[in-house]
């Protein structure tokens, strides 16, 4: 019954930040229902989306994530009353900042996935993985990490000249 798996040249790394009560449980349900989705995603469990610091998203990109998924309880379902409402504002602002810096927001997905929405979880992961796969690797942060302390472009004429004169 196993369908022939398509091999891809590029397999993106997807990191998902999820709350334990809704999305983590939704992902569990996808498992118990034996739904299939790309294996590119790695989950980090938080008590609540309210705990998810924007710095973690930044850190994930710096650590080589090609796509990030942040997912929690639907509005009104938060186990902690209002954590997801606070998170919603925080991320609404943060994504605008990332966009302005030049991060393609197609790499950053936010969703509400409840404990009953195993199917939606699969859909979210599959969609993001495929979209990011088509976009190719997230080079921006990785290139920064590779750059040396020199504060100009490496192919700057002054630098070349200096090099040639040695």
């Amino acid at each position: 019954m196993h369908s022939e798996k398509q091999k891809h040249a590029f397999e993106p790394r997807i990191i998902a930040f999820v709350c334990t009560w809704c999305t983590y449980a939704g992902a569990d349900l996808a498992g118990t229902s034996r739904m299939q989705y790309p294996s590119n995603v790695r989950l980090l469990k938080f008590p609540c989306t309210g705990r998810i610091d924007p710095v973690f998203i930044l850190k994930a990109f710096q650590q080589g994530a090609d796509g990030v998924l942040v997912s929690g309880c639907h509005p009104g379902d938060c186990h902690y009353i209002a954590g997801n409402f606070h998170a919603r504002r925080r991320f609404a602002a943060f994504r605008k900042l990332l966009e302005f810096i030049g991060v393609d927001l197609d790499r950053l997905q936010f969703s509400w996935v409840s404990a009953a929405e195993g199917g939606k979880w699969v859909e979210m992961v599959t969609e993001l993985t495929e979209r990011v796969r088509a976009m190719g690797p997230m080079r921006e942060f990785r290139e920064l990490a590779l750059e040396e302390q020199w504060s100009g472009a490496l192919d700057a004429p002054e630098l070349k000249e200096a090099y040639n004169s040695i």
Binding site: P54, V55, L58, K59, Q62, A93, F94, L97, L98, I101, F141, L144, A145, E147, E148, Q149, S151
Partner: peptide, 25 residues
């Protein structure tokens, strides 16, 4: 270490993003 502290491009970018986020609002 949430943000790399050396004055290298990666740390610089992270610093300015975090700073802008902390000042938002």
């Amino acid at each position: 270490q949430m943000v790399e502290s050396t004055p290298r491009p990666a740390g610089n970018t992270a610093w300015h993003i975090v700073r802008a986020m902390h000042l938002a609002g």
